[in-house]
Design a protein around this nucleic acid. Sequence first.
RNA 1: CGGGGCGUAGCGCAGCCCGGUAGCGCGCCUGCUUUGGGAGCAGGAUGUCGGAGGUUCAAAUCCUCUCGCCCCGACCA
Length: 568
Amino acid sequence: MKTSQLLIPTLRDDPGEAETVSHRLMLRAGMIRKTAAGIYTYLPLGLRVIRKVETIIREEMNRAGAQELLMPIASPAELWKETGRWNYYGKELFRFKDRHERDFCLGPTHEEVITDLFRREVRSYRQLPLNFYQIQTKFRDEIRPRFGLMRGREFIMKDAYSFDLDEEGARASYQKMYDAYTRIFTRCGLTFRAVEADTGLIGGDVSHEFMVLAATGEATVVYTAEGTYAANLERAEVLPPTRVDDTPPQPLTAVTTPNCRTVEEVTSFLNISPHRLVKTLLYLADNEPVAVLIRGDHELNEVKLARLLGVTDIALADAATVSRLTNAPVGFAGPIGLSGIRIVADHAVSAMRNMVVGANQADTHYLNANWDRDFKVERFADLRNAQAGDPSPRGDGPLILAKGIEVGQVFLLGTKYSKSMNATILDAHGKERYAVMGCYGIGVGRTAAAAIEQHHDEKGIVWPYPIAPFHVHLVPVSQSARTVATAAHLYEVLTEGGIEVLWDDRDERAGVKFNDADLIGAPFQVVVGDKGLADGVIEVKIRRSGAKSRVAPADLVPHLRRLAEELA
RNA sequence: CGGGGCGUAGCGCAGCCCGGUAGCGCGCCUGCUUUGGGAGCAGGAUGUCGGAGGUUCAAAUCCUCUCGCCCCGACCA
């Protein structure tokens, strides 16, 4: 393609609205433009990358035995009411009414729609296993869309749904998808890890997320350097403490701690280390107050708490509720004398003696508090976030923390949807059984954005070859007849050689073209100029390394093929 | 939804405090010169100052309401 035939509105300056690298570079390289918050138009260059990622996904999904179909973007409320998600999904579900006042929503995911299709059309176990996928625009009315394509409200997703007769079959389908995902992200040139994950709104028993490791990632992953354990921080297990503090209990003592509300303030005022202190967090769990005890240097994990309490809605209590429950201002809550509310505690607290806690009284804490003696704990459980250096739950070394971008997730759903929607099949004995399902998503735009997060430099994007919008950026460096004619010739030759070329045919200065080429990030730049032509050569620059080589025009295609091999 | 911030030319911003009818850089258009890493000179175009209402002789500037957007948090693939 010629640049004169494509809208590629590159920006010289960083747009003010973009913070992250991928968002900034996608805007600057003229790949996307915002239409509304979290809603983007893909310009030709951006769309080409999206299509590249989609093609890789299609090839691998087809290879794994999945079949492509396309479901509607609008779905009727009835289906969502069958599974209960019409209420459960919350404000993220974008609802609207048609002209007859019937309720609809924009599909944020398609379990209901596909399960409805399945129960209507599939009767026999002989038709299984089945795996359907689509690549389609999803809409989730995110609380806070951000970072460009990384977290949009409208976004392109590949979603797949598998149906099996039994658990064993479902596991095999799950594993196939897991393997396909591994191939897909590898082919996209990403450094990633599959981690154990929470199942969230989708539900189900087993789940893995595919995390692209990048500093700008919104998720935290924990893993071990040598071993195999890797999990989302939301889910990462923390082992109970092995060493118990065996100092003898000391008498409970109240001390004045003026204006010391935070762990930092209390511990520095009392001159103790944070692991001697226990913070008492008051939560509303499905509107029931609960006190949670966590060691001062630890962080509560709300997913674990919600799971332990068996609730769906969990939030830190507001200041008014805290004062009502503790008769004290926020910052001085403690377990002693806290009546009429459940008290749960992290495992680590069970190993502590003579701890410091709030006294439920302004400007006061207790020293030497001991559980059982001074207050009762209903239950000790794993409630905190793992920290770097914690032992792996699999015993394979200390945990490492890193940031990741979740580009895909696979779920073993079990019969959650087939039961609520009565999706049954007949087995070999003529008996009705609920289909055992799995579902599998990939954020297409997010994958492209993640690739930029991992592959860029100060000049711009450095695309991995397989998802680059073009393989070669052809840069004629002057407007001389000879240069232009050579560029036109090379364009033909490269195109015939199956190489995708972006030919910068603008009448711009060399510097402008070079800078745009670096920004757009095609793996190779082919530079044609009078100087080189005088020597009978053209120049090839590798975007990633900056390495330049000179070749005769006739050798260009094989030369590029060789370089592409080396890059892969 | 809570907290913070921003809407002025295509992009980045100044002007607002202290009212007097809009400016800078880049980009864009024309011409000449230039032409291997974001050219020089000369000339030119472009703004309902996010929107509505109010105060005032006069509003980008002050007041009220409203819409949009960004950042942090809660939440989430």
